[in-house]
Design a protein around this nucleic acid. Structure first.
Length: 633
DNA sequence: CTAGGGTTAG
């Protein structure tokens, strides 16, 4: 056997092998490392010599993410040679591979085995708790830190603050921060992230200005925080200051986080800027991750055609890119296109379970029942994928939307896993669209057992009662909510104009241009009526989405309430603040209401405007009197 | 022959 690699070692001994294995670990060169491991076992090193290498090998496998091999070595290492670093290597490997519970179990075993814990596993513990949002275990960890006197270790405190921040315990986080004698950029950055998330952009900005030192991470977090809270203009100003004044270069991680923030908030203006920056930085050799984030941004900002273009221009694509593309098409109701692309996908990459969530939801949003059933039935046999609860949820959705509620129920009964909230919530939604009151009652019962705090389901059923003329039942159901003191999430619609996000709630009068908006609304309703639109007060009760208590209203009031739904207000503002003929892009946090859906179809026609609405479920593109969802939602 | 393990930005 000739191994060129052997010639690299003047003497085949741990002394030379160890640095080589470390290099493999650093570079994640799993194959080469494995060959070395094989050599070590076969080349006749003495048992003592080999045992000197076991820890290094463990570290190598742990850092390459080959947990199985790492675990095997962990068992093989004799007790006398196993120390804290070996435990920590394995634990951090679990945590990096998204197996937080295994990491926690290992930590518990360390305690059971009376291993003297030092600061490093503590950092790892907090990172796991942060990921799990488990402040219970996290604060126990805090206790350990105090007991063992690790508070002075900056990294430990940073990880601890991150844990508190991720869990929403801002006060705890700040307390730790204030008591730290020695802080570094990371400390400030962690706190900045938490404050932005839980106390808002204003407090975040104050903290940001106070920071003694800001690296590109801090800047990115600040910009993302602005964009995420609708402060688009401030975000953009900060981004240009970061790049042009301070000369920070954006790397692919920064680009991805910015793009994802733009996708979430619907900020296509900044999204485009970031896209262009990426193009200049990388040219046609666009990084796969950045390319994927870019197409995802365009899709989620309502520009699905641009998303397709970006996708087609990517020199290489992985399964994530394909999944993003397919689910983008699904959200836009382009189920047919998505299915046509699928054969091309399986030539390029191996589909995973997310792929089929995209495919099934594409079928569901486009009413392609047969195709959906086909893929679902063949998941295992053709693609080797065991259906998970989310796939069942898609199928229940698909059947339910199509009115096949019996089939949906049968499927739920056949599931090997008990149904979760998503599955039943989707079934309830279908009961609603198909007027199955009795089934809805049963489903609601189960849903309330699962999640007593969710108001949406009660409102849905209460609206169904109201629609069926059972006012008393409807009201008593609503009373249940009020006596429990639970308030529903208010419906909000927003629109980006000139770098600002304008947000509206139902009947909102807080906008500086309220007067003009309501004049426009009057005009709109008048023109809608003459175009044949009949307001549907039932859907005021029915939609429940924009939340106006409606017990005592007469018909006229109900109509008025209907007219001032948040999405209509946003459209009116859009009509009067953008150039004629330009499309309007509206974002709504809940599902679009049925009356608004009917109204916007006509608006798109009589105002010659394309109106794109992103609601919680999908996109609706209103154009010349019809909607891309084909009324199939 | 004795180092090796960890935090923030998808």
């Amino acid at each position: 056997m000739k191994w060129p690699i052997l010639q690299a070692f003047p003497s085949f001994s741990p002394r030379y092998l160890r640095p080589f294995l470390r290099l493999c670990a650093q570079q994640s060169a799993l194959i080469i490392g494995k060959k070395l491991h094989a050599l070590i076992l076969t080349t006749g090193l003495s048992a003592t010599q080999t045992s000197f290498l076991l820890n290094t090998l463990l570290h190598f496998y742990a850092s390459c993410g080959d947990i199985l091999s790492a675990q095997k070595l962990f068992v093989e290492i004799p007790h006398s040679c196993k120390d804290i670093a070996d435990w920590t290597a394995l634990m951090s490997s679990f945590s990096r591979q998204n197996r937080p519970h295994d990491a926690l179990r290992l930590f518990a075993q360390m305690l059971e085995n009376s291993i003297q814990i030092d600061d490093v596993p503590m950092v790892c513990l907090f990172s796991v708790c942060a990921w799990l949002r488990d402040v219970g275990v996290g604060s126990q960890g805090h206790g350990c830190v105090v007991k063992m006197g690790f508070e002075g270790k900056v990294k430990v405190s940073n990880a601890m603050m991150d844990m508190y921040g991720k869990c929403g315990m801002v006060r705890e986080m700040r307390r730790v921060f204030d008591e730290m004698k020695e802080k570094n950029v990371v400390s400030w950055t962690v706190v900045l992230d938490g404050v932005l998330k839980w106390e808002g952009v204003r407090s975040g900005r104050l903290l940001f200005d106070e920071m003694p030192e800001r690296n590109e991470v801090a800047w990115t977090i600040m910009v993302v925080g602005c964009v995420g809270s609708g402060f688009s203009k401030d975000g953009f100003l900060l981004l240009s200051e970061m790049v042009f004044h301070w000369g920070f270069k954006l790397n692919h991680i920064t680009l991805c986080s910015l793009l994802s923030a733009c996708a979430q908030s619907g900020d296509v203006v900044m999204g485009r800027w970031v896209h262009v920056y990426g193009l200049k930085l990388m040219g046609t050799e666009m990084d796969i991750m950045v390319g994927t984030a870019t197409l995802d941004m365009y899709a989620k900002c309502g520009r699905v055609d641009t998303a397709v273009k970006v996708f087609e221009c990517m020199p290489r694509r992985n399964v994530v890119s394909w999944n993003a593309m397919l689910s983008g098409l699904a959200m836009h109701g382009r189920g047919r296109v998505a299915l046509d692309m699928f054969p091309r996908m399986i030539e390029e990459v191996k589909p995973d379970d997310l792929t089929f969530i995209a495919v099934l939801s594409a079928c569901s949003h486009s009413g392609l029942i047969d195709q959906g059933s086909y893929y679902f039935d063949n998941l295992e046999s053709l693609y080797g994928i065991t259906p998970k609860i989310d796939h069942y949820a898609c199928m229940v959705d698909l059947l339910g939307r199509a009115g096949r509620l019996e089939d949906a129920q049968t499927l739920i009964n056949q599931m090997p896993i008990p149904p979760n909230e998503v599955v039943l919530g989707s079934l309830l939604g279908s009961c609603n669209s198909h007027g199955k009151l009795q089934l809805a009652e049963r489903v609601l019962q189960k849903l309330t057992e699962m999640n007593p705090l969710n108001t949406e389901y009660h409102i849905l059923l209460s609206n169904m009662y109201a629609l069926a003329g059972k006012r008393q039942k409807a009201n008593s159901l609503r009373k249940v909510l009020t006596t429990k003191g639970i308030r529903k999430v208010p419906g909000m619609s927003s629109i980006h104009v000139d770098g600002h996000v304008h947000q509206f709630s139902a009947g909102d009068k807080s906008h500086p241009r309220t007067q003009e908006i309501y004049l426009m609304l009057d005009d709109m309703v008048r023109r809608l009526r003459s175009a044949g639109y009949i307001p549907n007060p039932a859907s005021q009760v029915f939609s429940g989405s924009d939340g106006i208590e409606d017990d005592a209203m007469d018909l006229e009031e109900k109509e008025q309430a209907l007219f001032s739904h948040s999405e209509k207000l946003a459209v009116c503002f859009g009509l009067l603040s953008t150039k004629p003929g330009t499309p309007l892009y509206i974002f709504k946090n809940l599902r679009i209401c049925q009356d608004c859906h009917a109204a916007l179809k006509i608006v798109s026609k009589i105002y010659y405007r394309e109106i794109v609405v992103r609601d919680r479920n999908r996109f609706h593109c209103f154009k010349q009197g019809s909607c891309s969802c084909c009324d199939f939602w």
